[in-house]
């Protein structure tokens, strides 16, 4: 994709974000933060590609996890760590947001 189309998407997304999020009431600001934490875990998409992609010609094995038949190049190791961090964001973020929002349910 060329730079201008990517930039277009970026600018439009910020605009949409602005419109949607200004309507979130202050009582939900904490769940908004933890929920957006979960969404910023979208980096997991990049992490999956770095961790799972095949090694290129000049890459060599940097680390072997004994017993698991896993051989990692430096790039794959970085990707693997990123998968862990991003998953903590996604799972931790959505779960803790759910836990908080449950408390805001009306008890009638």
């Amino acid at each position: 994709m060329d730079f201008v189309s990517i930039l277009t998407i970026f600018v439009l997304a910020i605009y949409v974000g602005w419109e949607v999020i200004t309507k979130v009431p202050p009582i939900l600001h904490t769940p908004l933060m933890s929920g957006s934490n979960a969404i910023s875990g979208i980096t997991i998409v990049g992490a999956l590609l770095s961790a799972g992609g095949a090694m290129v010609a000049n890459e060599h094995v940097f680390l072997t996890i004994p017993g698991l038949e896993i051989h990692l190049s430096l790039a794959k190791l970085l990707g693997f760590s990123a998968v862990i961090f991003a998953t903590i964001n996604v799972v931790g973020g959505f779960m803790v947001t759910h836990r908080m929002l449950e408390m805001f349910k009306r008890k009638d």
Binding site: A13, I14, G17, I21, L32, N37, I39, S40
Partner: peptide, 10 residues
Amino acid sequence: IIAGSLVGAS
């Protein structure tokens, strides 16, 4: 880009 921008704006 979209998800990141949403969080950035938030």
